[in-house]
Design a protein around this nucleic acid. Sequence first.
DNA 1: GTTGACGGACGTACAGCGTACGTGTCAGTC
DNA 2: GACTGACACGTACGCTGTACGTCCGTCAAC
Lengths: 214, 214
Amino acid sequence: MLSRSRIVDAAVDLIEREGADAVSMRRIAAGLGVGVMSLYNHVPNKAALLDAISESVLSKIEFTDDPSAHWTDRVRVQARAFRQIAHHYPRSTMVVFSRQLHSTAGLLPVERALSTLRDAGFEGGEAVRMLRMFVAYIVGSLLREVGVTPTFAPVRGDATVVDVDPALFPEVSSLAPYLTSCDHDEEFEFGLELLVQAMSVRAGKQAGRRSARG
Amino acid sequence: MLSRSRIVDAAVDLIEREGADAVSMRRIAAGLGVGVMSLYNHVPNKAALLDAISESVLSKIEFTDDPSAHWTDRVRVQARAFRQIAHHYPRSTMVVFSRQLHSTAGLLPVERALSTLRDAGFEGGEAVRMLRMFVAYIVGSLLREVGVTPTFAPVRGDATVVDVDPALFPEVSSLAPYLTSCDHDEEFEFGLELLVQAMSVRAGKQAGRRSARG
DNA sequence: GTTGACGGACGTACAGCGTACGTGTCAGTC
DNA sequence: GACTGACACGTACGCTGTACGTCCGTCAAC
């Protein structure tokens, strides 16, 4: 028996196996062993199916939030949970990012994150701004990681940075070894720590106001 | 006479006017008053055309770098220059983000940014990590701004957050007014300042190493 | 002036796409 | 038995990217 979730799962599988470009209603139907138009009994159109895929992927994020942990650790855990799913469904993640997220699937993560930020001492608009900034960093990082890994297209040779004129681009040239290689885990953790530290400073300033201006 | 740049410009215009989904070789050709297949004399295929669009948009970023300014101000200026282009070509920017950027068009910005970071006192891998983190934040922010603004699809009603059960999502519910509204300029500057401050702390720590571990 | 080569614009054709519409087959209810 | 709804399916239409062949304007060689 066909169902919306079976269709979504098959679509995600297809995306991960053959890439987002390979996704067509006919391919999905073939994968399920049904006719094309049968899908439309459960999904209004392809755009809605892609939205459902986004929702499905986002809902897979596991937020094992430990309220007793320090808020900095909770931030770290939540960020890594996001990233883990993105790495598990890299090509589908690109689909998520390329679409509007206007669904309530991501509401639980938001609730958890806001709760964490409140513990950190952020109130009202400040908490929301912090959350948005954090999400921006995570999304931007994952877009790079997932776009670079063999996700959407086969990786091209890294000769692009090798044949750079050192006279024109001295910095790029001298930092070439760092630019060509990239330990994604390390990069992510680096930015994560920087953000957590920046938030700690900000939190201390506004919450405890410890020895500031005094 | 047809040319690659004329095709790219027409494509960008079309994307901005009617959205990325409306882009087809036939539409572009019609906009230029030529036959479809004439395009293929200048562009190998549609994917290459989209890559050319990315390159074109990225190359429009104006980096009026002032080496005499303080590095923090240079960082701000560079980030805003990026954002300005994204706002000028919002729908095309989505195309840029959805593709692999593997072109040398973004090399000048990279050079400028690395130079700025060197002035800030970052060396080697640290500079590259800072750059990547910064780009991640900017890209993530723009993805949200540009994805929310009437860019890809018409904006949906903001009733998604209104009908939230306060018992299930207390934080989301109480912060609803902050979550539904969003001053993008303010948000961007907020994160920008936070990052610049975080970088300043880091720069002071590793460059001057003033009174650390002492 | 004629000829040949060639680059570029173009038309045709084909496979594949999303999906509107109609049809057939069941399960459940009177 | 008849009626009803849900659901799987086939057909068909307009669209897509693009391979291929054709035609024409320009220019070099003779």
